[in-house]
């Protein structure tokens, strides 16, 4: 039981690694056609403008509201998820940063292909983007599933850090500055 499981995992990890590497190469070649205002592009500390755009698109889908049209729900853009991700990535180790960037490239350039989409992720409509993200979350390649979980965590960190999201959760937020208990 144990032997085959390990070798399969190794194999999958190898496939995942190769895919991530390949997408990083594709990304190097295809970085035009992304529309980022100069003031935002100039302020980025870790992300390339096209990576920022990808994160914006992914965040809009990952944090899509359950009650469309309800204006009390902040959007991923309201909470500046991609901008937060840019500054957070700076705190990561070089290895993690590089893996994340490869994953970003994969989501943008390679992940749409197996589903029959020839356009990059940021050019797809919302339904197609959701399908691409769902395919990553349940991907047979374990490394890609793990990578997606990391991307999702980063995006939710950017979203749920914002106090405007806490009311719908019933979360009172930090206690700092509020009266303490007297046990």
């Amino acid at each position: 039981m144990r032997g085959p499981a390990i070798s399969r995992r190794k194999l999958l990890a190898g496939v995942g690694g190769a895919l991530l590497g390949a997408s990083a190469v594709v990304a190097l070649l295809r970085t035009s056609g992304y529309d980022v205002p100069d003031e935002i592009a100039g302020a980025l500390t870790s992300l390339e403008p096209w990576e920022y755009v990808l994160l914006q698109h992914a965040a809009r889908r990952i944090c899509a509201p359950d009650r469309p049209g309800d204006r009390s729900i902040p959007t991923a853009d309201d909470t500046n998820v991609a901008g937060f991700a840019d500054s957070y990535i700076r705190t990561m180790s070089a290895d993690l940063r590089s893996d994340l960037k490869k994953l970003i490239a994969l989501v943008e350039h390679l992940a749409p292909l197996p589903l029959g989409y020839r356009a990059r992720f940021t050019k797809l409509d919302a339904v197609a983007q959701d399908r691409v993200l769902a395919s990553l979350e349940s991907n047979d390649v374990a490394l890609l599933r793990g990578g997606f979980a990391g991307l999702k965590s980063l995006i939710f960190m950017g979203y749920y850090r914002d106090p405007r999201t806490w009311r719908m959760l019933g979360y009172d937020g930090p206690r700092v500055g509020r009266p303490v208990l007297g046990w």
């Binding site: 979350e137 939710f156 979203y159």
Partner: peptide, 15 residues
Amino acid sequence: IGTASMLPGFGAAHM
């Protein structure tokens, strides 16, 4: 943040 990362899925169902 920890809870959101742990719950499966994303998008409307996750929210």
